[in-house]
Each structure stands twice: as structure tokens, then as C-alpha cells.
Amino acid sequence: MDFGPYLMLASLEGAVTAAVLALMAAGLSLVFGVMRVVNVAHGEFYMLGAVLAWVVASMAGGGAAGFVLALAVAPLVVGAVAAAADVTVLKHLDYDPERTIVATIGLLYILQQLTLMGYGPEARPVEPPFNARIALPWVEWGQGGPQLYWPWGLSITSYKLFVIGAAAAVLAGLWALMTHTRIGLMMRATQLDGEMAQAFGIPVERVYALVFGLGAALAALAGVLIVPIQQAHYLMGGDALLLSFIVVIIGGLGSLAGTVIAAILIGMSDGIISVFFSPTLAKIIATLLVAFVLVFRPEGLMGKRAR
């Protein structure tokens, strides 16, 4: 494949990765920003979203209706599970950062094992509602000026385009929620100073439960969206957690815009670097790139310099 089309293909693939990553990382960033805790079980909420998508879609007999139903049901269920975990466990830990890590590792074990017992060890697919292969053209400067042609292999599917669009829409909605609604105001107030917010009559405990649930629901939504491309598997949460964790830190703590930019950067660079190097070497370079961004800009891309 020629260099130009290859780069375009890798960028498109990177954009799909970035879209899903941004959605999931936004959830983690919300929890991290408002509650100041690392939720190690965040990846499992993503996994639960994917698994529930399979359950709902197969109960509804597959097809587009099943998928749409899953899109609505899975985030709600997962959000409720997460809110319940917050009220029963995290609240009693006073959101101590270190204890929360251990408790959410415990939660991770519990969710994985329950999924393994109820759903099994297989990777199961969900049929996308639509999935047309779209061959893409490329411009070439021939003798008579620019010419369009269809390079071998350069294509994307309609579903992948939909994922990019859906993620963008949800993130816009989240941004509107945070900046233009009362509940968003409460969250931002709690993020700035929990004690002060409490003093001003904001029900901080309920805000925490809501934030934790909302963060999990976003992860679950990302899970539902990805499952027609990848498959639902009970161990899929691990790598997703790490990637979204990285995105949140690179973006800068508590900055939604930073999170989205970082997701695009990491998703795209993962795709584009793979053009130039052998696959494993490309991964190593992408990994080190992340490390060096932080070494030279420890507060993240959009974060404020602390102290």
C-alpha cells in the first residue's frame, strides 16, 4: 500500500480507538476529578457494558433493535451497580485514595469472577446494526492534474464511523451537563472543594454516588459501542483501564477537554506510529512517548501546574 493511503487508514483506525477511549476516560476523569480516587474497577464496568450488550441483544433476538436496547439498558444497569458499590463500600472508606485502590481491586475480582461464572470464558460478538464496507478514494497527481482512485485496502465501515460520531455526541452532552445544568454545577463545586460544597448545602454524598454511577455508565456505554467491533470477554477490562488511566493523566486531572485531546493523541499516535515500525516496536515507542510527555510536562497537557 502506498504511504499516503496507509497513513489515512491508520489515522481512521486511530480515530475509532480514540473515540472509545475518550468516552471511557471521560468517565474515569469525572470520578478522579470529583472524588479524587482511582477506580481500578473502571475497566470492569466497561467489560460489564459489553457483556450486558451481548445479553440484551441476544435476549432481544439480535438485530438492530437488540443493539439499540442494549445501548439504553447496559449503561443504566452498570451505573446502578456502581452507585450501589459507592454507597456500600467506598463511602465507608471515606474515599481514602489508597484504601480505595485495594477495595476496587477487590471489586474487580468480584465482577470478573461473577462474569466468568454467569457468562463464561468465551469472547462473544454482537451484530452491528449496520456495517457496510466503505471503500475510500485517494487523490493522486497524475499527468492531467489531480485524479481520484480507490487504493487497495483503503476502507472503513459505516459502523466505525457511527462509533466516532456517537462518542462525539455523548461527550458534547456530557460537557453540556457539566457546564449548563444544576447538577453539573454541584459536581464542579464538589470537585473544587468538597467541604466547602457541603457547607453550602450540596448533598456531597449523593453527588459522589451519582458521579461514580455516571462514570461507570460512560465506561459501559463505551463497552456497548465497542462490542460489535471487538467482542465481549470477561478479561477485556484490564487493558482498557490502563489506557484510559493514561489518557486521564496525560490530559491533566479533572480536565474534560484535556482528556478528549489526550484520547485523540494517544489513539491516533498508536495508529500512526504503527505505519513506520514493526508492530511491537511501534507499541514500545508509543509507550515511551507517553512516559516522556509526562516527564517533561508532569501536570499533563491541560492541567494546571500544581504548587
Binding site: 493511503p5 487508514l9 483506525e13 487493558d239 505505519v275
Partner: peptide, 11 residues
């Protein structure tokens, strides 16, 4: 290993 998307390698 742990790779989840492959299209970018096929070219």
C-alpha cells in the same frame, strides 16, 4: 499480544 485492533497492520 493484548492488541485489540488490527486493521492498521494489514497494509
Amino acid at each position: 499480544p493484548t492488541e485489540t485492533s488490527f486493521t492498521k497492520y494489514f497494509p
